[in-house]
Write a protein that binds this DNA or RNA. Structure first.
Length: 439
RNA sequence: GCCCAGGUAGUAUAGUUCGGUCUAGUAUAUGCGGCUGUCGCCCGCAGGACCCGGGUCCGAAUCCCGGCCUGGGCGCCA
């Protein structure tokens, strides 16, 4: 088939912007063939663009022969352009259709697509991910990532309005900084380096200068996790705020989450309906449960966890049934949290770290940070970390480190909550996990 | 790393219990033909599959062993 060039054609509308008010107007549309229904004397082409679909109606005896000829060989996913007139009609669900006056085919597509893009025969997740570029053209995939985009936009705007400065910390770092999670190794001009697991230390150092910072970006964990809520590469929304404690940043956090829910629910009506999902906007404030209270609750459900131990997955699932929405867990044993989380002044066994949970999923973790150098070194030693390898970081504590606190939201997990998707890979464009490195 | 389940056309599945009418069924997709208001269009025709290797048996999609791959759970995980 002869392919067309775009020439001087310029898009006038996305499919979703067409309405019966445009009846009779000439429009230029670009997109892809989603489906062709040929009834003999009349042909219907469903044109899809990123915003939705619109029907192109071709009554064979009444359109220009050139248009008819162009549409004779159309197949799914052909990239096309249409010039035509909007026509009001009661014969389509949208109440409008396009009668074409000119038609261009920019590119063809395989006859047999690896997944069914009309959604009649949904494919399994691994098949979808193998054909991810095509899978992402499906309306439900588009809706998922539109929701993620709107949520992130809402959060960014909220933080900007609160005077946070957006920063970019290094992804390539020199040492296994924090203990805990395994890091990926990279060869840095012959030197051993690592991919960052979080911006934690850098954003704390910036408390000396910028006071309120946030960062949105990818981080890496070389864990062997094999679950629906872990990735090797994930996106973190991190904030850090000077002259504050855990309570201050928890108050901010619940407003951020609430705002994201409200905005997505308001702006993504079509997308949520496409996903057949309803967002329940949470009421403020969120429940605040202490670690000790959680242990008591679990005991009534027959799960006994000795004080001081971490809460395991089975227990979280039970807890998620008791508290089915957002809730904080505070006052964790100091031993369960990272070295930089501040122990309480009145009881050092307990720290000012917190988690924000959604059902059984840990969505956010944060806390008041240690700002005293000696205490920080003391905690490093308690965690079996070598203070010498933190020399660069520790210098920041010689220049007037203010009291500060912060948190980190897992963007993919938040997107799961906002879309109802049960597998984190569905809400990640090109997920990286224990076994998947492509596409 | 441990445990469980599974691998059948492009996709999604039935069949595996208890080996034999399985020459492997269905839907959708694809190709060809037909149809002037479809919208999961419809109708007809066609092509298309038992993960790999070994074993048991007269006979294996089905049972056994090994491998590979996938999904799920646990653990790990600021």
């Amino acid at each position: 088939m002869d392919l067309d060039s775009i020439g001087d054609w310029v898009r006038t509308h996305y499919s979703s912007h067409l309405s019966s008010e445009l009846d009779g107007e000439a429009v230029t549309l670009f997109g892809w063939v989603q489906d062709v229904r040929d009834l003999g004397g009349i042909r219907f082409v469903i044109l899809q663009d990123r915003e939705g679909t619109i029907q192109i109606t071709i009554p064979k005896k009444r359109v220009a022969p050139a248009v008819l000829a162009k549409t004779d060989a159309l197949q799914k996913r052909f990239s096309v352009g249409v010039k035509g007139n909007v026509k009001k009609t009661n014969m389509t669900p949208r109440g409008i259709e396009i009668i074409p006056t000119a038609f261009k085919v920019f590119n063809e597509a395989s006859e047999q697509l690896p997944i069914d893009i009309t959604g009649k025969t949904p494919a399994n997740i691994e098949v979808r991910l193998d054909a991810r570029p095509l899978d992402l053209t499906q309306p439900s995939s588009l809706a998922t990532f539109k929701i993620q985009h709107i949520a992130l936009d809402a959060i960014r705007s909220f933080l900007f309005a609160k005077d946070f400065i957006e920063i970019h910390s290094p992804r390539i770092i020199a040492s296994a900084t924090e203990g805990g999670a395994e890091l990926f190794c990279v060869d840095y001009f012959g030197q051993k380096a690592y991919l960052a697991q979080s911006p934690q230390l850098y954003k704390e150092e910036l408390m000396l200068s910028f006071e309120k910072v946030f960062e949105v970006g990818p981080f890496f964990r070389a864990e062997e996790s094999h679950t629906r809520r872990h990735l090797s590469e994930f996106t973190s929304i991190d904030i850090e705020q000077a002259f504050s404690n855990a309570d201050d940043v928890m108050n901010l956090l619940e407003k951020v989450i609430h705002h994201a829910c409200v905005v997505v629910k308001e702006k993504c009506v079509v997308e949520l309906s496409n996903l057949d999902y309803t967002i329940e906007v949470p009421t403020l404030p969120f429940k605040r449960l202490t670690y000790t209270k959680v242990l008591d609750d679990l005991k009534t459900q027959g799960i006994t966890i000795p004080w001081g131990e971490d809460i395991h997955t089975e227990a979280y699932r039970v807890l998620g049934d008791i508290y089915p929405f957002f809730y904080f867990i505070t006052d964790w044993p100091t031993s369960t949290k990272a070295f930089y989380i501040k122990p309480r002044d009145d009881n050092p066994e307990v720290c000012e770290g917190f988690d924000l949970m959604w059902r059984y999923i840990e969505l956010v973790s944060g806390g008041t940070r240690i700002s005293d150098k000696n205490q920080l070194i003391h905690r490093l030693v308690e965690k079996n970390l070598n203070p010498d390898s933190f020399k660069c970081h520790l210098q920041a504590y010689d220049y007037g480190m203010p009291p500060h606190a912060g948190w980190a939201i897992g963007l993919e997990r938040l997107t799961m909550i906002l879309t109802g998707k049960k597998n984190i890979r569905e809400v990640t464009l090109y997920p990286r996990d224990r076994v998947r490195l492509t596409p």
